[in-house]
């Protein structure tokens, strides 16, 4: 079902003059003002989907060839038959590397772009052209107008960001996070931001932040810049906060030959680690220990980490925080729009 027909379904409160198959009232205005944006967003999502499907097919075919050639990553045969196996692996490494190196950063920027180019213009373009005075002189109230205008934008962002997150999660699970794919643990900065539900919550937050800045700043260009800066600050803040959203696991390991640091489990996020001195004090692994007397007798290392099982709890908590902030901003915008001139 297209978004247009979804909007159409919402517009069922315009009374008897409603003719089937056509948009009416505010739904028509919102459609008329945003149809270009709608097509751009849909085209973007479809393009990402097609590209990932194409790369997925390439990875599947390459994996098939690798298995047929008898190359197996988990045994010594790889090293033995390395000459013929390595070139085959390239056909897996290249597409998955393009995903981690190019698509992931682009997807991670989507929430900021949503704020800058969907959120900000919602108010700032009306203010810059004075058309808010036209709109708010019609018979519909400002809050009703905002509910439609904002609701449509939120629905579009919700649908598009959910589709992108689902596509990225699918490709990551089936093609990237495999024994042959690129090394890309789920907690890694950009990877975490495009998997699961956090990208959806961040995109919605980006939208309302852009709307708020557009409402307060009133001019598009400065508002776009301020929104970009604020989104960067929020993402950095979230990155700092993220390790503490859920209790970390503490682990102790004996020092092994050639390994004097803590080894976290596969795909876990090592938040901090260090050495345990014979007297029981912990020394963070930042070089401070080198000159200390006790360091030579160290036999144990410690680590605080998030195992991969913490991925979903952390995603849920972070999304909850972002959605609470989103709700607060929405409430403020609806309150403020009644008094703005």
């Amino acid at each position: 079902m297209s978004v247009a027909s979804l909007i159409e379904q919402v517009a069922t409160d315009e009374g008897p003059k409603l003719r089937p198959g056509r948009l009416h009232g505010l739904a028509w205005l919102v459609w008329r003002q945003n149809r270009f944006l709608l097509w751009v967003v849909l085209a973007g999502v479809v393009a990402v989907g097609c590209w990932l499907w194409y790369e997925h097919s390439a990875v599947v075919a390459a994996t098939e060839r690798i298995h047929q050639a008898g190359c197996s990553y988990d045994s010594d045969t790889w090293a033995a038959s390395g000459q013929s196996c390595w070139p085959l692996l390239e056909d897996v490494v290249n597409p998955t590397g393009a995903f981690t190196g190019e698509l992931q950063p682009a997807l991670a920027a989507v929430p900021a772009l949503v704020g800058m180019f969907v959120g900000v213009p919602l108010f700032s373009q009306e203010f810059e052209r004075g058309t808010h005075r036209l709109l708010w002189s019609q018979s519909v109230s400002r809050t009703r107008w905002l509910a439609f205008r904002f609701g449509a934008a939120a629905a579009l962002v919700l649908v598009a960001s959910t589709a992108l997150a689902a596509l990225a999660s699918w490709f990551w699970h089936t093609d990237v996070h495999t024994e042959l794919g690129a090394f890309d643990p789920p907690f890694q900065g950009v990877t975490y931001l495009v998997l699961g539900i956090v990208p959806v919550a961040t995109a919605l937050f980006g939208l309302v932040l852009g709307v708020l800045v557009g409402l307060l700043v009133r001019r598009t260009l400065p508002a776009v810049g301020i929104t970009a800066a604020l989104m960067l600050a929020v993402e950095c803040g979230m990155y700092q906060l993220r390790p503490y959203l859920y209790p970390q696991v503490y682990g102790v390991q004996p020092i092994r030959p050639n390994f004097d640091t803590f080894m976290q489990p596969t795909d876990a996020w090592l938040v901090s680690n260090g050495m345990i001195l014979p007297n029981g004090t912990k020394v963070a692994n930042d070089g401070a220990c080198i000159n200390q007397r006790g360091c030579r007798q160290v036999s144990q290392v410690y680590g605080y980490y998030h195992p991969v099982s913490h991925f979903w709890p952390i995603q849920l908590i972070e999304s909850g925080i972002l959605l609470c902030l989103t709700a607060a901003v929405v409430a403020f915008v609806f309150h403020r729009v009644r008094r703005v001139a």
């Binding site: 009416h24 009232g25 505010l26 028509w28 205005l29 008329r32 003002q33 052209r129 004075g130 058309t131 808010h132 005075r133 036209l134 002189s137 019609q138 018979s139 519909v140």
Partner: peptide, 28 residues
């Protein structure tokens, strides 16, 4: 109450017919 502001704000990308449709859609 109808109001026409001094700078006569209108949507520049709308056609005349679309502008009148805006009036029709937003006013009972």
């Amino acid at each position: 109450v109808a109001f026409v502001a001094q700078d006569k704000p209108l949507y520049q990308r709308f056609t005349v017919a679309e502008m009148l449709r805006l009036g029709r859609e937003l006013n009972p």
